[in-house]
Design a protein around this nucleic acid. Structure first.
Length: 485
RNA sequence: GAGCCGUUAGCUCAGCUGGUAGAGCAACUGCCUUUUAAGCAGUGGGUCACAGGUUCGAAUCCUGUACGGCUCACCA
């Protein structure tokens, strides 16, 4: 048997057409929103509303219907909220009233003209004087009481999730707000928003596996960008001293509650700034976003409370490890033995062993925002060497709630050093670190023209939004997360 | 990629150690002019994810497949 409700609604569609009513009309312009009506008039007394006598017009989806035979209530939902409407046999023409009862279903879009009044329970309600059929819905909506629970349907048919679950709408409103706030923050500081290529001939700017695609006309493979970094720095060479790009980045890695193959990142670069300046800037930026979304420096996440209050802790990787293991931790023999005992795959790379030991032991403990700095040189091929310790680079990562949220450093602008670093990366790539950098001669030659001292940062927007919306999975903050087709 | 768990009506879920499918909401038919999970009476609706197997008999037990969730690994 074919879906009965579907067939029935299709026959209602035919019936409407037979009566000369276009079930997909586009001739109604709402002049008000539900939020306007509620915020301007909800506090008025019944008498005040009656005196007003004004006709309002609004449109939306019918999300509930309570039929009493000779009158009925229903709720209309628009982008701003929902409002109750009341239709009565003797305050509207009879044909419309019958149409409403027989042919208008929950899920349909309708427009109404009517005046406002208060019901016995005091709810501001529109008394419908005219009703317009705008769009017939052929499928029934998810259940009104429990909403839509099935996660697979929620992700695959996000529109249903948005209709049924208020929380989903709020999450994406917050996401939008976060992005807007970041733009505003950087724009106010004279950063220029730019766009750089998504298709890269060399996948650079991060250590990650790229997606490969093919350009037919040029008969060449291209990579979806794993980071916009190297192009943004070319722009700094070009004299754009403060730039940022907010956009999608692609990494061909596993999918999890914290990883989506395409995710949103902001990278920004500021000439004449140090990585320590960027700690201050990021602290300010994130606090600005938190204040204007959550509205409190204390943010509840799962069963934890994250305190965003400035100043944030700053933790040095080497110092932390020396405190734990003594100074011999930087000696190769001891270090590799330790890493092996912890099951860490370091591939004979010292910096990798150090950072992975640190992450394994301390990452999960970093609940409140914490800057982790003092990264080894060999895992940071694009970062500037520290002036005091040439084994270390001027780089930090921001951890919140045990997750890496940002990565930043003073940029390496010495082209000869950069070339050597790329060469070292290529060597390590041969050793089996297949996500390490390739030689990028074009980038090196850009540096040869001179890049001013610069620092740059990347912030994972999805993860930040997760924290601010108390979402435990990245799929909750991406409209259409990656699923098998 | 590995382990564990899940998939039953449009939606939310029951269905025990195998005996042939249930509820609420939604829908349909009535009644009802201030309800808001409206109410009352009645009706219809299922390849129990898919494919095999065991059995007299499978939603239930077994195997495989698909899709999803969680954890781990890689990573941001």
């Amino acid at each position: 048997m074919e879906d009965k409700q579907f067939e029935l609604r299709k026959s209602k569609l035919k019936e409407l057409r037979a009566m000369g009513i276009d079930p997909y009309a586009n001739d109604f312009t709402p002049e008000h929103t539900t939020r306007e009506l509620l915020s301007l008039h909800a506090s008025k007394s019944p008498e005040e509303l009656e005196e007003m006598g004004q006709l309002f017009s609004l449109a939306g989806r019918v999300v509930s219907k309570r039929d009493f035979g000779k009158s009925a209530f229903f709720h209309l939902s628009d982008r701003t909220g929902r409002i109750q409407a009341f239709i009565q046999k003797n305050s509207i023409d009879e044909e419309t009233f019958t149409l409403f009862r027989k042919l208008l279903d929950v899920g349909d879009f309708a427009g109404v003209h009517g005046e406002l009044f208060k019901t016995r329970t005091g709810e501001l309600t529109v008394r419908v004087r005219e009703l317009f059929f705008l769009t017939k819905a052929l499928r029934p909506l998810p259940e009104k009481w429990h909403g839509l629970q099935d996660v697979e349907t929620r992700y695959r048919q996000r529109y249903l999730d948005l209709i049924a679950n208020q929380r989903t709408r709020e999450i994406f409103q917050t996401r939008s707000k976060v992005i807007n706030l970041i733009r505003r923050f950087l724009d106010e500081r004279d950063f220029l928003e730019v766009e750089t290529p998504v298709l890269h001939p060399i996948a650079g700017g991060a250590t990650a596996k790229p997606f490969v695609t093919h350009h037919n006309a040029l008969d060449m493979d291209l990579y979806l960008r794993i980071a916009p970094e190297l192009y943004l720095k070319r722009l700094v060479v070009g004299g754009l001293e403060r730039v940022y790009e907010l956009g999608r980045t692609f990494r061909n890695e596993g999918v999890s509650t914290k990883h989506n193959p395409e995710f949103t990142m902001i990278e920004f670069y500021q000439a004449y700034a140090t990585y320590e300046d960027l700690m201050d800037l990021i602290e300010e930026l994130v606090c600005y976003v938190v204040e204007n979304t959550v509205g409190d420096t204390l943010v509840e996440y799962e069963d934890k409370k994250i305190d965003f209050k400035k100043p944030w802790k700053r933790v040095n990787i080497y110092e932390t490890l020396r405190e734990k293991f003594g100074s011999k931790i930087t000696e190769e023999e001891f270090l590799f033995a330790k890493a092996d005992s912890m099951g860490i795959n370091h591939n004979g790379i010292k910096g990798k062993a150090l950072t992975e030991i640190f992450e394994a032991l301390f990452e999960a403990t970093l609940l409140n925002p914490t800057f982790v700095y003092g990264f080894p040189l060999d895992v940071s091929p694009l970062a500037r060497k520290n002036d005091d310790d040439p084994e270390v680079v001027d780089r930090f990562e921001l951890y919140i709630c045990g997750r890496e949220i940002a990565n930043a450093f003073s940029e390496l602008n010495d082209p000869i050093d950069q070339k050597k670093r790329f060469t070292d990366q290529v060597e390590m790539k041969k050793k089996g670190e297949d996500e390490y950098h390739e030689m990028d001669n074009d980038y090196v030659s850009a540096l040869e023209y001179g890049m001013p001292p610069t620092s740059g940062a990347g912030i994972g927007i999805d993860r930040l939004v997760m924290l601010l919306t108390n979402s435990s999975s990245i799929r909750e903050v991406i409209f259409f997360p990656h699923l098998r087709p």
